[in-house]
Every structure is written in structure tokens, then in C-alpha cells.
Design a protein around this nucleic acid. Structure first.
Lengths: 234, 234
DNA sequence: GCGAAGCTTCGATCAGGATCGAAGCATGGC
DNA sequence: GCCATGCTTCGATCCTGATCGAAGCTTCGC
């Protein structure tokens, strides 16, 4: 019928929730493995592989094989730009998922991001740690200070063992609901695991929501001083 | 699964050829009837009605009943902006419809983007204005300088009136064929309108092509010094 | 080497939605 | 009033594609 660039194939690719979640995760800038993207999208590895194949064939993402992992990244900043433009339009036209389910506020509050804590509480956690000088740095690169090491040990974590893992100990991860970083990496995962063990929180079945018990929330607030983070940003 | 603006519903709507054709047709700026859009999309009236209902429910378009016709128009310039951004991405990633139309060079040269000038001439126009300091800024945020205000007034535009509109006076809009910004916003629309009034250019029926008369092109070049912008960027 | 982990391919299932025929509702011309 | 025109609703069909189980392939740890 018409000629010129064909937007439908790309738009159709963005129209699937699993793929949109993957791309949104990648628009933070860092490359992610196929497995991480699968978890991010909430689908199995097979399904994720199919989606990644399509996105790759459409040149929206590029994959690099590294060992037995495959790292995927956006093919360029313009992909993220389109996502942003779409997000803006979605916001103006009132397409927010917030109202769709009762779980949404809970998701914004606290959820797992792969294997660490995200959402308001996740961001507040990292804020508290950096504010007290236990973690130093900003953005993606974070370092645990000596005081931080003591602190984590007091919490019952084996920092030495965590440092020996391949995975980076501390890493900043951009939070999509708060738009600020929360703590990822081996330490972030170990902390969340610790919260589970202490009975402070638990995963809700079939969702990414992390629900804190009243007692757990109290302890969390006491240790990390969450109350210091009201609605500030605009 | 996630919250926040939901791009998937909108992207899915854009992912259907029939709907994409309709929206592309509407991005020329003028309202079209349901029947015209059906023909544009190459589907029957029933199918078109279904699509229009969905686009309308998603607030991407708005319909006004007039007699026994229903006129549909985009709900705002940002819809056309998203289409432009998508088109640019589609071009970079090589998603072109195979059949190339004869009108294609003319489209690249000068076309309407909702209600302002796009294409080579549109980009050259903004280049000239910024180069002379009449418009300051880059990317999406642009500001008309004092000298620019004088200039526009000399051209016969009522800048004060344009400033009173709800819509932003100046805005950059990414051009899909040139991959640089052209001038959007109230000023961009008023300028194109002025070109029409001056007899420099006119819309070609049933397409987005803007054709300049030889005399109009000469005047355009003289005022905006278009020749000063060959293939420069890399 | 052997087993485990990460990713992809194959095959089957199943739901959503695009499409059109036919009928129903408005509006305008006469 | 009566018919023609323009648009929408209803119902049925059909097909694309999302999904996951199972199996295959590669790479790493030991």
C-alpha cells in the first residue's frame, strides 16, 4: 500500500508485555543476561529466548555471548528514546497500570528485582546506607566501606564469602518506580535473603511483591531509618 | 506485572497495519471521516469501525459527529510525535516496506508533521534559526530569543498571541527522514500556515507532501539561507 | 571427563483478536 | 414518510503468536 519505514513490526514487538518489560529493563543502560531478562519479564527461559530472538532479528537489541551467558543490550539510545516517548504518551492518555490491580501499590512499595529488594523500601535502604557512609558511590558503581562491612557482619552476613563470588558485591540498579538506584549485586541479594530468614518479609506467591510483616517493617525502619524518606521528589 | 505508564496497550494498537495506516493518515493534521480512514487502511467499514473504537477508547484519537459523518483526528501532536520517532527507529533498523513510491523523494523534501513543516526544508529552517541565534536550545526544548521575536513579527506572526496558547511556543520534533530536529509547537504551526498564506507552498491532496512553488522556494531560501546546509552531519 | 548451569530449538496447545457478512441505528435528501 | 448513505453492533470464522514441556547444545566447575 504505502512505502517508507514500516512502524508496525516494531510497534507490534513493543506491544507484548514480556518484550516491553525486557526492553524497559534494558533501557537502564546496562546489559542483562537472557536469564535475568526472563525473570524481569516473568516468563520462562524458552519464552524469553523466543522474544529475544525476535527483538534481535529486528535489530532492536544486540546479544553478546560471554561464556555461558548471553548479554543483551539495546542496539542504540534511540530505542530507549522511543520507549520514553511512548511512556509519555501513555501517561497523558491515562494508560497507567496502577489502577488495574490492588497489588500495584504493594509492588511500588517493595518487590524483588531479580533477587534483591526494589521499590520504595529498596531505594530507602540504599539511601540509608549511603547516607551513613556504609556504602560509597553513586549510580551503578558502589563500594562497601569498612564501616559497612562491620555493619553487614553484625547483621549476620558473611561479607568475605560474598566477595569471593564472581558476581559484583555491590551494584546500583535503577528502580523503575522510584527512578533512583537501589542496591543490587551479591550484597543486595544476601540482604533480601537475610530479611526472609529473619521472618521480616516473604515473597507473595506468583508475584514480585515482597510483603513485610508488621514486626519486620518495624525492625527494618529501626535499622535503616526509612522514615527519613517521605514524598520528596517531584 | 509492573506499574507505571503502560506502553504495551498503545504499542499494540500501533502494531496493527490497519490502525497504523489510519494514524499515519491522521498525522497529516486534518480530520478524516471513518469511511475515508477505512479506505486509507484498506479494510471494510465494519473493521475500520472496530479499530476506530479501540483507538478512541485509548484516547489516541477523538471523533466528532457531524451530520451522518464522523470526523476523527489525533488527540494531540504528541501522537504524531510518537509516530515520527517510531518511523525513525524503523528506518535505522531497516524496516522499510519493499515497494517504494514515486512520491518518496518529495516526502523527504517537505511534508507536514501534524501541523508543522518536516523533512529537509523543515530541518533546514530550524538550523537556520538556531544558527542565527533566533532560536536557542537543542533537542526538544527550544526558546525563541528576543531577536527571534522581532524576526517572527517581521514575518507577520503575532508572537504574543501564540505565546498565550496552551501549547508550547517552540518545541523540537525529531525528523525521521533527516534524523535531526525540526521546529514544532505553536510557532512551527504558525510558520507553516504563514507559508501557505504567502502562496509559497501548498498541501498536495491526499498526501503529506508540501510542495513549494518555484517563487516560494526562492523566497524561502533567501530568508532562511537553506543552501548553507549541505550534507554535514555524520 | 562428568555433572550442572545457561541458553536455544522443537512441538503442541491455546487464547486473543483481526476480519468480514448481515443486521441494526442514526441522519439527510426528496 | 420513504429510501439511500454512513457508521456501528453482533456473530462466526480463522489465523497469528504467546506460552511452556521436553530435548539438544555449549560452557563452566571440579
Amino acid at each position: 500500500m504505502k512505502s517508507g519505514p514500516d512502524i508496525t513490526t516494531i510497534a507490534a514487538l513493543l506491544g507484548d508485555p514480556a518484550r516491553a518489560n525486557m526492553l524497559t529493563a534494558l533501557s537502564a543502560g546496562q546489559a542483562l543476561t537472557a536469564g535475568e531478562l526472563a525473570r524481569e519479564a516473568g516468563v520462562t527461559a524458552q519464552t524469553a529466548s523466543s522474544h529475544l530472538g525476535k527483538l534481535s532479528a529486528a535489530h532492536l537489541i544486540e546479544g553478546r555471548k560471554q561464556g555461558r551467558h548471553v548479554y543483551y543490550a539495546l542496539s542504540g539510545p534511540d530505542v530507549a528514546g522511543v520507549l520514553e516517548a511512548l511512556t509519555g504518551l501513555a501517561e497523558r492518555t491515562g494508560h497507567t497500570r496502577v489502577r488495574t490491580g490492588p497489588r500495584q501499590p504493594a509492588l511500588r512499595r517493595a518487590r524483588v528485582c531479580y533477587d534483591h529488594l526494589a521499590g520504595d523500601l529498596g531505594v530507602a535502604l540504599l539511601d540509608s546506607l549511603t547516607h551513613r557512609g556504609l556504602i560509597v558511590g553513586a549510580g551503578e558503581t558502589l563500594v562497601l566501606s569498612e564501616g559497612g562491612e562491620t555493619f553487614m557482619t553484625a547483621l549476620g552476613l558473611d561479607v568475605a564469602a560474598l566477595s569471593r563470588l564472581r558476581r559484583p558485591l555491590c551494584k546500583g540498579c535503577l528502580d523503575w518506580s522510584v527512578r533512583r538506584s537501589h542496591l543490587a549485586g551479591a550484597l543486595g541479594a544476601a540482604l533480601l535473603e537475610r530479611f526472609y530468614r529473619l521472618g521480616w518479609a516473604q515473597r507473595e506467591a506468583g508475584s514480585r511483591v515482597v510483603s513485610f510483616s508488621p514486626r519486620g517493617l518495624e525492625a527494618f525502619r529501626e535499622i535503616f531509618g526509612v522514615a527519613a524518606e517521605p514524598e520528596a521528589a517531584a
